[in-house]
Amino acid sequence: MSISRAMTYAKMNTVTGIDSADPHTLVQMLLDGAIEKINKAKYSIKSQQTNKKGEFISWAISIIGGLQASLDIEKGGEVAQNLNDLYEFSVQHLVDANIENSEEKLDNVLKVLTNISDGWKGIREEVVESKKNNANSL
Rank of each mutant, 00 (worst) to 15 (best):
M1L: 06
M1K: 01
S2N: 15
R5W: 00
T8V: 11
T8D: 11
Y9L: 15
A10H: 09
A10T: 10
A10F: 07
K11G: 05
N13A: 08
N13T: 08
N13C: 05
S20T: 15
A21E: 01
D22F: 00
D22I: 09
P23G: 09
T25G: 06
T25H: 00
T25N: 07
L26C: 03
V27N: 07
V27R: 12
L31Q: 14
D32I: 00
A34L: 11
A34N: 10
A34P: 13
I35C: 10
K37Y: 06
I38Y: 00
K42R: 02
K42T: 01
K42I: 03
S44K: 07
S47I: 08
Q48F: 08
Q49N: 14
Q49D: 12
T50E: 13
N51K: 09
N51C: 03
K52G: 06
K53M: 11
G54L: 06
G54R: 08
F56H: 07
F56V: 01
I57P: 01
S58W: 04
W59Y: 10
A60W: 00
A60K: 01
S62D: 14
I63E: 06
I64C: 06
I64H: 03
G66V: 07
G66I: 03
A69M: 12
L71P: 06
D72R: 05
I73M: 09
K75I: 00
G77V: 05
E78W: 00
E78I: 15
V79P: 04
V79M: 14
A80H: 03
Q81V: 11
Q81K: 13
N82Y: 09
N82E: 10
N84H: 14
N84Q: 15
N84V: 01
L86W: 00
Y87D: 08
F89E: 01
V91T: 12
L94D: 06
L94P: 05
V95D: 07
I99L: 11
S102D: 11
D107F: 05
D107L: 08
D107G: 07
V109N: 01
L110P: 13
K111V: 14
V112W: 03
N115R: 13
I116C: 02
I116V: 14
I116A: 00
S117L: 09
S117W: 05
D118G: 12
D118A: 14
D118H: 10
K121D: 12
K121R: 15
K121T: 13
E125W: 03
E125K: 14
E125L: 09
E126N: 15
V128H: 07
V128C: 04
E129Y: 04
K131R: 12
K131N: 13
K132M: 08
N133T: 09
N134S: 15
A135M: 09
S137W: 01
L138C: 09
L138Q: 12
L138F: 14
